[in-house]
Amino acid sequence: MSPSPIVTGADGSAESLDAVRWAARAARLHGRPLEIRHALDFPALLAGGEVPPPEDMLDALRARGHRALRTAQELAGAQGMPDAVTRLDPDRAAQSLIEASRTAALLVVGASGRGRCAGPLAGSVAAAIGTHGRCDTVVVRGDRWDEPDADGPVVTGIDGSDTGRRVLATALAEARAREVPLVVLHAWADEPPAELDRQAVAEAGRRLLDARVPDTGDVEVARVVVPAHPRRELVERSAAAQLVVLGDRGRGGFPGLLLGSTAQALLHNAGCPVLLVRTAGPPVRP
Rank of each mutant, 00 (worst) to 15 (best):
P3H: 07
P3G: 06
P3V: 03
T8F: 03
A10V: 06
D11M: 03
S13Y: 07
D18H: 15
A19D: 03
W22F: 15
A24E: 02
A24F: 05
A26W: 03
H30P: 13
H30E: 10
R32L: 12
R32K: 13
P33F: 01
H38S: 08
A39I: 00
A39L: 04
L40E: 09
P43T: 01
A44Y: 11
G48S: 09
P54Q: 04
D56S: 03
M57E: 07
D59T: 07
A60W: 04
R62I: 08
R62S: 06
A63G: 08
G65M: 03
R70M: 10
E74N: 10
L75T: 14
A76P: 08
A78P: 05
A84Q: 03
T86W: 11
P90Y: 15
Q95T: 11
E99P: 11
A100R: 11
R102G: 12
A105D: 11
G110A: 09
S112V: 07
C117F: 13
G119W: 08
P120K: 05
A122Y: 08
V125P: 00
A126P: 15
A128E: 05
I129S: 00
I129M: 13
C135T: 14
D136H: 11
V138C: 02
V140H: 06
G142E: 15
R144N: 14
D146C: 14
E147K: 15
P148S: 14
D149P: 02
I158W: 06
R165T: 11
R165Q: 12
T170M: 12
T170L: 13
A173L: 09
E174L: 03
E174S: 09
A175T: 12
A177V: 01
R178F: 00
E179H: 15
L182G: 01
L185P: 00
A187E: 00
A189F: 04
D190I: 10
E191G: 08
E195V: 05
L196W: 12
A200G: 02
R206M: 13
D210R: 10
R212S: 14
R212F: 13
P214G: 04
D215P: 07
D218H: 10
E220L: 14
A228T: 14
H229R: 10
P230M: 01
P230S: 01
R231E: 10
V235Q: 04
A240I: 12
L243V: 01
V245N: 00
G247Y: 01
R251I: 10
F254A: 12
L258I: 06
G260Y: 00
A263K: 01
Q264Y: 08
Q264T: 13
A270T: 05
P273R: 02
V277A: 01
R278W: 09
R278V: 02
R278Y: 07
P282D: 00
P282C: 01
P286S: 13
